[in-house]
Design a protein around this nucleic acid. Structure first.
Lengths: 103, 103
DNA sequence: AAAATACACAAGTTTAAACTTGACTATTTA
DNA sequence: TAAATAGTCAAGTTTAAACTTGTGTATTTT
């Protein structure tokens, strides 16, 4: 499975999308992340693992609490995938821009 | 369901992602689109309907054949959603760029 | 040190989404 | 005009992903 496939698969689920949105500009513990959902902590932890494997979220454990924040990696992969689906002339224009930036 | 939710939900499925990738820079009939997959034409048509509802694909029927191509709409929605998940300072920089572009 | 908190893990269940079947319509080809 | 092609539709089945249960560990609080 490619990186982009992992990212898009991860974002295919409504709960995981909501988790990502709630983590925008805000770090939070697993329990805090789980609070609004009508499901067990285990289920939320499973969602989290998928987001982490996709590079959308990174976590760090301090003591007994695991802190979660967004990871830019997954979003970079997402942007690159989306860009590659653009019509040829747009990709050419974009490549031209990149060359100009370098000079 | 928001527009971004529809787009990400649609791209959550591996077959639909593959369909999108194969439609990059190439229009194609429903049967041509269905050819590589080990599933019925009906299943492919169902996937297609989801992609179309999300604004990722547009189709047009001429005679008995329906031609499918990518639609930029869905990708614009996807890009905007991804951009909104960036850290605050990146969004501020981006907003500054927009203002400078206008002047 | 006892109790509560925060999370982890393995194994089983449930359900929504993917997929099929069978019947049908419209269009093109032989 | 008969047959083949391209797709549509409603209704039923299947399966992978989401979710739960039960148990266990490390850490913090009282």
């Amino acid at each position: 499975m490619t990186d982009a496939n992992k990212v898009l698969q991860a974002l295919g689920d409504a709960t995981r999308r909501d988790m990502v949105e709630r983590l925008t500009d805000t770090a939070m513990s697993v329990s805090a992340l789980a609070a609004p959902y009508d499901m067990t902590l285990t289920a939320v932890a499973q969602h989290l693992a998928i987001l982490e494997a996709a590079g959308l979220v990174k976590t760090e454990k301090n003591g007994r609490v695991r802190s979660c924040r967004l990871d830019t990696k997954g979003f970079d992969i997402l942007d690159a995938w989306s860009k590659a689906r653009r019509p040829l002339w747009q990709k050419r224009l974009d490549a031209l821009g990149d060359v100009l930036d370098e000079t």
